Simulated assay, not measured.
Amino acid sequence: MKFSPQILNENLADQAQAIYQQFFLIEADPNWPFGHLSDLINVKYGKDHKKLADGVYPVYGSGGIMRYVERPLYEKESVLIPRKGTLNNVMYVNQPFWSVDTMFYTEMKQTNVAKFVYHFVKSKDLASMNAGSAVPSMTTAILNALELRIPSAEALLQFENSVAPMYEMMKKNEDQSRKLTELRDALLPKLMSGEIDVSDLDL
């Protein structure tokens, strides 16, 4: 049975989340010090993208990729957290990108921490921490104040080495899915207009 890239990625993400829980919840070292999310990251505001020309860098909103633009806002590993809208739609990104003004992006304060931060934030019900009234909203103060045990550098490295192959596979699946979509979008109008004739194909 052949599964779609989306289903494969959901399965890989579930496996990575299970490894996170094993490392940092079930087998957490009681000697790890308590701290706050602000000890690990800087939360940054995204920016308006409307004046940017089209390009190759993805623009992320709370629903995912919105378009591709000429230059990135940030080029390093990051965790994207909705500032308004669907607050629980947290994303991990490891390529140059642009983040819209309703989406926070994050700078890591130490190595091998981005994937840990992603799984930690994703495991939280951010929607229940809503600071808005009409529109669900998140604030830097709420995110910075989230409490957690700060894992050792050794534990973070071990976790990184365990889940990095899964993330690489997810990235390949996403790239394949995007290329297939682009190919479909390019061929479909030509098929509909008769520019490409498939009547003689033996299917």
Rank of each mutant, 00 (worst) to 15 (best):
N42I: 15
E195Q: 11
I7S: 04
Y105C: 01
S162N: 13
Y45E: 15
S177C: 05
L52H: 08
R71G: 14
F120K: 02
Y167I: 11
E77R: 14
D29C: 14
V59E: 12
L52I: 13
K44M: 15
G194N: 09
Y167W: 06
K84L: 07
V121Q: 04
A18K: 15
T106S: 07
Q158D: 09
P151M: 08
L203W: 08
I19W: 14
K124I: 07
S123Y: 00
I41V: 15
F3D: 06
V113L: 02
N9H: 08
K122C: 01
L12D: 03
L188R: 13
I196N: 06
Y20F: 15
L146M: 05
Y60S: 07
I196T: 06
Q21F: 11
A53W: 15
K124Q: 08
K109I: 07
D39S: 09
L80N: 12
K109L: 10
R178M: 12
A131C: 01
A145G: 00
A164Y: 14
F104V: 04
M91S: 06
W98I: 01
P72Q: 05
Q22T: 12
E77N: 11
V198T: 13
G61D: 15
E160I: 13
K47D: 13
L87Q: 03
V117T: 07
E75N: 12
M138C: 02
D101H: 10
S123V: 07
S123I: 03
D175N: 02
Q15M: 08
M192A: 02
L148P: 05
E70S: 13
L80C: 06
G63Y: 14
R67D: 10
T106W: 02
E27L: 14
N9K: 11
S199H: 11
T181Y: 06
F23V: 08
S193A: 08
L157H: 10
M108K: 06
Y45Q: 12
M169D: 04
D202N: 11
I19V: 15
A114F: 00
